[in-house]
Amino acid sequence: MDVFMKGLSKAKEGVVAAAEKTKQGVAEAAGKTKEGVLYVGSKTKEGVVHGVATVAEKTKEQVTNVGGAVVTGVTAVAQKTVEGAGSIAAATGFVKKDQLGKNEEGAPQEGILEDMPVDPDNEAYEMPSEEGYQDYEPEA
């Protein structure tokens, strides 16, 4: 019985440690998101679009440190934060509304985080759909 109880105690310690790591990862992701939003706020009209992409990228980098179902929630929060940063930029006159959601080359930025393969159960990952990809044929 002692062996059984000791095993359960060790398992509990492992769960607590994993929860603490997840909590730490979420806190880091939130900190990076805040950094990115402050970065966007300090940019001029020309830099705002690039700044919004930076927020998304920093958040995406930190999301990889967070495991399990938390990833889905962090990704949703990050996307809403990026959308909010863009709205703030438009409201303050840093950028025109028609410039939001495009990178410096004018290509749409939507789907940055949505296409990231995420499995809350950590069982399997699927690649994003290939609808947006084109076949590449090298020139002879």
Rank of each mutant, 00 (worst) to 15 (best):
K6E: 03
A27W: 11
V48Y: 14
N65R: 14
T81F: 06
V77S: 01
V48N: 00
P138R: 09
E28R: 15
Q134M: 10
A85K: 04
V118S: 09
K58T: 05
A29H: 06
S42Q: 07
G14I: 12
G51N: 05
G93C: 02
G31T: 03
G67N: 05
K32V: 07
P117W: 07
E114L: 13
V26R: 00
G36K: 15
P108V: 06
A91I: 04
A124G: 07
K21T: 04
E130P: 12
N65K: 10
G7K: 03
V37K: 00
E28A: 10
D98T: 11
Q79N: 10
K58R: 15
V71P: 01
G25E: 14
E139Y: 13
V71M: 14
P120W: 08
A69G: 07
S87C: 11
M127E: 09
V16C: 05
M127D: 04
V70L: 13
E105Q: 13
K45T: 12
V66R: 06
V49T: 03
A27G: 09
V16W: 14
V26S: 01
A89Q: 05
G25R: 07
P138S: 08
E104G: 07
G51C: 08
S9R: 14
A107F: 11
T59F: 04
V71I: 14
E105T: 12
P120H: 13
F4K: 01
N65G: 12
E114R: 13
P128T: 13
D119S: 05
A124S: 05
P128G: 09
T81C: 07
A11N: 00
T75W: 11
N103S: 11
K58W: 14
E130S: 08
V82D: 01
E110F: 08
I88A: 04
G36Y: 12
G93A: 15
N103R: 11
T64F: 13
L100R: 12
D119T: 03
E126D: 12
D121P: 09
I112P: 11
V118I: 06
V37D: 00
V55F: 09
V48R: 00
T81A: 10
E35M: 14
G73C: 15
T72Q: 08
A107Y: 01
V66P: 01
M127F: 11
Q109P: 15
T72R: 13
V55E: 00
A91G: 10
G106A: 07
E123F: 06
G86V: 12
E110L: 14
A30H: 02
N103A: 03
G7R: 15
P128R: 12
D115M: 07
V74T: 05
A56M: 13
T22E: 00
A124W: 10
E123W: 09
T33F: 02
A56Q: 03
V63D: 00
G67M: 12
N122A: 04
E126H: 13
A11Q: 00
T64P: 01
A89N: 01
T22L: 04
A107T: 14
E114D: 15
V63K: 02
L113F: 09
D115F: 11
E61V: 10
A27H: 06
E83I: 04
S42N: 10
D121N: 08
K60M: 14
D98N: 15
V37Q: 00
G25H: 13
H50P: 01
A56Y: 15
L38Q: 10
V66D: 01
A91R: 11
G31Y: 05
A30W: 14
A19P: 00
G41D: 00
Q99W: 10
D115Q: 09
D119L: 10
Q79D: 03
E114S: 15
T81D: 00
K96L: 12
K12T: 05
I112S: 08
E130F: 03
T75N: 04
T81W: 03
F4C: 02
G41I: 03
I88N: 02
G84D: 03
G41L: 01
T33I: 05
A91N: 06
Q134A: 06
A76F: 06
Q24C: 01
G47V: 05
D115A: 12
K6Q: 04
T44I: 12
Q24W: 04
V71F: 05
T75H: 13
K21W: 13
G132F: 10
V48K: 00
V26L: 11
T64A: 05
G101Q: 08
V74L: 14
G31I: 07
V66I: 12
K6L: 03
G73K: 09
E13F: 07
G111M: 02
T22M: 14
Y136T: 06
E114W: 14
K21P: 00
G47H: 10
N65P: 03
Q62F: 14
G84F: 11
P108K: 02
G73P: 02
M116H: 14
G31A: 10
K58P: 00
G73H: 04
L113M: 09
A76Y: 13
K10D: 03
T22F: 12
G31D: 05
E104V: 01
D2L: 14
T54A: 06
A27C: 11
K60C: 10
P128L: 14
A17L: 09
S87F: 04
V82L: 06
T33M: 13
G47W: 10
G106W: 14
K10P: 00
T72G: 14
T72F: 15
K45D: 00
L113R: 13
L100P: 14
M1W: 00
I112C: 10
G106L: 04
A11T: 06
G106V: 09
E137A: 12
D121R: 10
K6N: 05
Y136P: 04
Q79S: 07
V82Y: 11
H50E: 03
E105F: 05
K96N: 07
Y125Q: 15
D2K: 10
A19C: 02
H50W: 08
E126P: 08
G73Q: 10
K60G: 03
V66A: 07
S42M: 12
K6P: 00
V16M: 15
P128W: 12
T92N: 04
Q109S: 14
E46K: 13
T92K: 04
K45H: 01
T59R: 01
D121V: 04
V66L: 09
G84R: 10
K60S: 03
A140R: 10
V15T: 02
G51D: 01
D121K: 10
T59Q: 01
V63M: 11
K23W: 06
E131T: 09
K12I: 02
G47C: 09
V26T: 01
G73N: 10
G84M: 11
G51H: 12
V55W: 05
S87G: 14
K58Y: 09
E123K: 15
Q109E: 06
A29N: 01
K97Y: 02
Q134E: 10
G132M: 12
A91W: 08
V3T: 01
K43Y: 07
S129Q: 05
Q79P: 01
V118T: 06
Q99F: 11
L38M: 14
G51E: 01
K43S: 02
K10Y: 05
I88C: 04
A91P: 04
K102C: 03
L8A: 02
G106D: 02
G25D: 02
S129N: 05
S87T: 11
T81H: 06
D119V: 08
K96M: 05
E123N: 07
A89E: 02
M1K: 00
D2A: 15
G106C: 08
T54S: 05
E114V: 12
A56C: 15
V66K: 02
E57N: 14
K97G: 12
A69P: 02
P128I: 12
E83Q: 10
V40P: 00
G36N: 08
K12M: 03
V55G: 02
M1I: 00
Y133C: 10
E123G: 11
V66G: 03
D2R: 03
T81Q: 01
D135M: 09
K6G: 06
A11K: 01
A56V: 07
A27V: 06
N65W: 15
G68H: 10
K23A: 06
T33G: 04
Y39L: 09
D2Y: 10
A85N: 03
G14N: 05
E130K: 13
G41F: 09
K34I: 04
V48S: 01
L8H: 00
V74S: 01
S42I: 04
